[in-house]
Nucleic acid binder design. Structure first.
Length: 584
RNA sequence: GGUUCUUUGGAGUAGUGGCUUAUCUCGUCUCCCUGUCACGGAGAAGAUCACGAGUUCGAAUCUCGUAAGAACCGCCA
């Protein structure tokens, strides 16, 4: 099919050229003997005019008809400054209606928003939306830069199996029944973790993969059941080598995509400090409002609530918001209290408001004059400042105030709208977390993560206070990547398995091949998995992962377009040796 | 597993117990129009108000249940 150029690329310099264009009818303005059609392809829109000799040929054309137009590029008498191609138009000489279109069930114009489920049902139409196409182009750019940058540094892309063995630690696996071995199952990889470590043992030294990962867990605005990681692993390095590689990669991506220069080295803080200051392991550093520990001010308090909390190893935490007291009514603050009670198990939310020199609010009365003065001095309170206070167990205080910090920053518009990217390495994550369900310690990152050298002796005796060599890279409140230095010593690996309650027999059963591999000269190694969607979201300036995935699912992992998952024929089940208990 | 919110012509919405024969915008259909660009003008069609039960003299509106969507908590090594 003849096509001489893309519609959105035409400019005044092209005037006089005869061109053949193809595309979709974005909009048609019919003035009778003169018809204008905005012809859209993926590059943009150009106005085509059909004069009295041509108007008849397009009288049946409606929105989204596919056309081929031959015509001359002409300078417009009156330019449209809102269009990239607004200085020119195409005077049509020939037109072919290539295909018709029914009226669309969704509205493609940018100022309208069809509901999320209608858009997902007709995703292939929603994809015609220029903003969505731009996101997919952006994602492509990120992948291209990642490939080129890593290639230049000697990393080799290796594909690892999608049909793999289930590794019960961690997220729930998607399972695939085996036809040849009835009763046995593949698992889709949650990440290529074990394979990339085996590649290190296999002597690849520097590996990467743009890898699809699968996790059968409940979704969020930034989580889909399948997603893509820029997966990187390297031998003979340490944190410094890996951080340098990632920082360079991020710099290249932000330069290539946004022409934005990131700082040479990203900030670093330990996990403990991060939780203390921000109540989150993925803090948004585009605004301040850090959590303050007020416990020392109330050591001798007679306020019973604080007294009880402090006597039971709790803390009193606070977050200050400047010029916010007037914006939060009693009702609004009650709502915030419900938010922390329901979401974060906090028993209550107290507040203080500064009016002139005077402190008022829910706990102003029970506090002594001395204590109030101490709070004012400690938080440097000025007129109209709002202070949210929670007294409870430390982790509850931190996470609840951390969540309020983010919530109010949004409500008070404290977050810069323009391009602003605050990167942060969070290091020394805890080695283990206590699982209430399983009544055992589980790996906080994954069980192949190396402990800090000085904590190796505490693995079995004091798992709670073991720190690991795991790290996250955080940007604007998103966990952009996770990684760690891995264990490369068989004895240490077995010890960590023991710490999470895996008996040697069970460990052998689940990871035997992996443990065996450690016996044969395993190099020290470590790496990261970068969340491609989250990175693209940040670059695209959206907070919904569906905006950067071509065919996303709903919150409940349904594809509304194809209606997957769905039933299969009994014959298909038979051959797999699978029976369905309760058909819904 | 839990919490909160949402569901009204093809699309987006207004409507908090009777003022409704359900509002407006876009789209659709018919006619007019040679400089529009979210074209304009005249007219028309199109909705058992997600589904089921209940309260009431009376329900799009109140209550309960079901389904679907969204955000969050748990979960996500």
């Amino acid at each position: 099919m003849e096509r001489t150029c893309e519609n959105g690329t035409l400019r005044k310099e092209d005037a006089g050229k005869t061109v053949t264009l193809v595309g979709w009818t974005a909009r048609r303005r019919d003035l009778g003997a003169l018809v204008f059609i905005d012809l859209r392809d993926r590059s943009g829109i150009v106005q085509v005019t059909f004069d009295e000799t041509m108007a008849d040929k397009v009288k049946d054309v409606r929105n989204e008809y596919v056309l081929q137009v031959k015509g001359t590029v002409c300078v417009r008498k009156e330019a449209n400054p809102k269009m990239a191609t607004g200085e020119i138009e195409i005077h049509a000489q020939e037109v072919t209606i290539i295909n018709a279109s029914d009226p669309l069930p969704i509205d493609l114009s940018d100022n309208s928003t069809s509901s999320e489920d209608t858009r997902l049902k007709y995703r292939y139409l929603d994809l015609r939306r220029p903003s969505l196409q731009a996101n997919l182009f952006l994602r492509h750019r990120v992948c291209m830069i990642a490939r080129n940058t890593l290639d230049k540094e000697g990393f080799v892309e290796v594909e690892t199996p999608i049909l793999a063995r289930s590794t019960p630690e961690g997220a729930r696996d998607y399972l695939v029944p085996s036809r040849i071995y009835n009763g046995k199952f593949w698992a889709l990889p949650q990440s290529p973790q074990i394979y990339k470590q085996l590649l290190m043992i296999g002597g690849m030294e520097k590996y990467f993969q743009i890898a699809r990962c699968f996790r059968d867990e409940d979704l969020r605005a930034d989580r889909q059941p399948e997603f893509t990681q820029i997966d990187i692993e390297m031998s003979f390095g340490d944190e410094e080598t890996i951080f340098a590689t990632v920082e360079n990669l991020m710099q290249e991506i932000f330069k290539g995509v946004k022409n934005y220069k990131l700082e040479d080295h990203f900030l670093r803080i330990t996990w403990n400090e991060c939780m203390r200051r921000f109540g989150s392991d993925k803090p948004d550093l585009r605004f301040g409002n850090e959590i303050q520990d007020l416990t020392p001010l109330f050591q001798n308090t007679e306020f019973q609530v604080f007294r009880n909390v402090i006597d039971n190893n709790g803390i009193v935490g606070a977050v200050k918001f400047e010029h916010a007291a007037g914006k939060y009514s009693r009702k609004a603050l009650d709502k915030l209290q419900d938010f922390v009670k329901q979401g974060f198990k906090a028993k209550a939310l107290a507040y203080l408001k500064m009016t002139g020199e005077e402190l008022s609010g829910s706990i102003a009365k029970p506090l002594s004059e001395e204590e109030k003065k101490a709070v004012i001095t400690k938080l440097d309170l000025k007129d109209d400042d709002l202070v949210l206070v929670i007294a409870d167990q430390p982790r509850i205080v931190e996470t609840a105030l951390g969540a309020l910090r983010v919530k109010l920053a949004h409500e008070l518009d404290l977050i810069p709208h323009e391009s602003c990217y605050k990167f942060l390495w969070v290091t020394e994550f805890p080695m283990f977390e206590w699982s209430e369900e399983e009544h055992r310690w589980v790996a906080a990152h994954h069980p192949f993560t190396a402990p800090k050298d000085e904590d190796v002796d505490k693995l079995l005796t004091d798992p709670e206070h073991c720190s690991s060599r795991a790290y996250d890279l955080v940007c604007n409140g998103y966990e952009l990547l996770s990684g760690s230095i891995r264990i490369h010593d068989q004895a240490l690996q077995e010890k960590v398995f023991e710490a999470i309650g895996l008996t040697p027999e069970k460990a052998r059963d689940r990871f035997g091949f992996f443990l065996d591999a450690f016996k044969f000269g395993t190099p020290p190694h470590g790496g990261v998995g970068i969340g491609l969607e989250r990175l693209t979201m940040i670059l695209a300036g959206t907070d919904n992962i569906r905006d950067v995935v071509a065919f996303p699912t709903t919150n409940s992992s349904l594809d509304l377009m194809s209606e997957a998952p769905n039933t299969v024929d009994d014959a298909q089940l038979d051959v797999l040796g699978v029976a369905v208990k309760d058909k819904k």
